[in-house]
Simulated scan of single mutants.
Amino acid sequence: MTIGIIGAGALGSNIARLLAKHGLSATIANSRGPASLKALTEELQPLIKAGTVQEAASADIVVVAVRWVDIEKALNGLPAWNRRIVIDGTNPVAFLDADSPDAKDPNNPLAAYGIKAIDLAGKHSSQVVGEAVPGARVVKAFNHLDVRVLPEPTASGGQRVLFYSGDDVDAKAEVRKLIEAVGYFPVDLGPLAVGGSLSGLPFGSLAGVNLVRI
């Protein structure tokens, strides 16, 4: 099983750290090219290597770890998915510049946190991601925890809980194996329309919830 990560910001880089910590290899890519990831790959060598977005997208399991506003650009023109697994780690929020009008908008309840909810016109977030990766089997995971704790699956003498959801039973089983392999305790939240809404920022009731199985 090969793993690719599209996106090398806080989410993508910390997923790479988590994988390397548990002996798993992956190819990570961003829009700026492999050379821009030299520091990260030197930190995580030899298990994590930098590649092009096309190379990362050719893996058996591909983690989408880009900002919501970059999804369409990041996933455009990639190889046919052919039922490969895409892990959707995104959340439908926009990160605000501190000096922007949105950051000072009294009608934005999330302005104090530097984010703004994106209107999905009645769709759930993984439905939107799924439309960008036609033919892939989408599983929602790695989106509900603070990215800074992702490399540390153990806490308080137990395992952190990682939620996941999806509509394809076999794809979910593969992602569950991966979650277990990196030391987390997986909890299945059901289909994407239910689980994705429960775990997704900014309004999911389980978003940001850091549960530990003792």
Rank of each mutant, 00 (worst) to 15 (best):
V212P: 01
P186L: 06
A132E: 01
G200N: 08
S197W: 03
A193M: 04
K104F: 01
V169C: 04
P46G: 07
S126R: 09
A155H: 11
L78C: 00
E174W: 04
K21H: 09
L145G: 10
R67I: 06
V161M: 09
N108S: 02
Y184I: 11
T27W: 02
V194M: 05
L192W: 04
R213C: 09
F142L: 14
E42F: 05
D170T: 15
A57M: 11
E42D: 15
G23P: 12
I214Q: 10
R67W: 09
R160N: 07
R160T: 09
A98N: 12
D188Y: 12
V128A: 07
P79E: 00
A16R: 01
S31H: 10
G166Q: 12
G195P: 03
G77I: 12
V63W: 00
L198M: 13
L11E: 02
I71A: 12
A117Y: 07
Y113R: 01
A111M: 05
R17V: 03
D102M: 15
G204T: 11
D70P: 06
G200I: 04
L189K: 06
V69A: 14
A8H: 04
G12Y: 00
A155Q: 15
L11W: 00
D97A: 08
P109Q: 11
L19S: 01
A94G: 08
I87N: 13
K38N: 14
P46M: 10
G51V: 06
P202Y: 05
K123M: 03
V161I: 15
V93K: 04
P134N: 03
W68A: 06
R176S: 15
L47E: 07
S125L: 08
D105A: 04
P186M: 11
G7Y: 01
W68M: 14
P151T: 01
A98M: 03
T41C: 01
H144T: 09
T27C: 08
I87M: 08
G122C: 15
L78H: 00
A74P: 11
I118M: 13
G33K: 06
N143L: 06
P106T: 10
V169I: 14
I118G: 07
E152V: 06
I87V: 15
P92C: 08
V194R: 10
V53S: 14
Y184R: 09
S165L: 07
S13G: 06
G208I: 09
V149A: 02
D70M: 15
L120S: 05
I115E: 00
V93R: 09
N91K: 03
K116E: 00
D99Q: 13
K177E: 13
A155G: 07
K38G: 12
I118D: 04
L206W: 04
V64T: 05
N76R: 09
L162C: 12
I87L: 06
L40C: 08
V63Q: 05
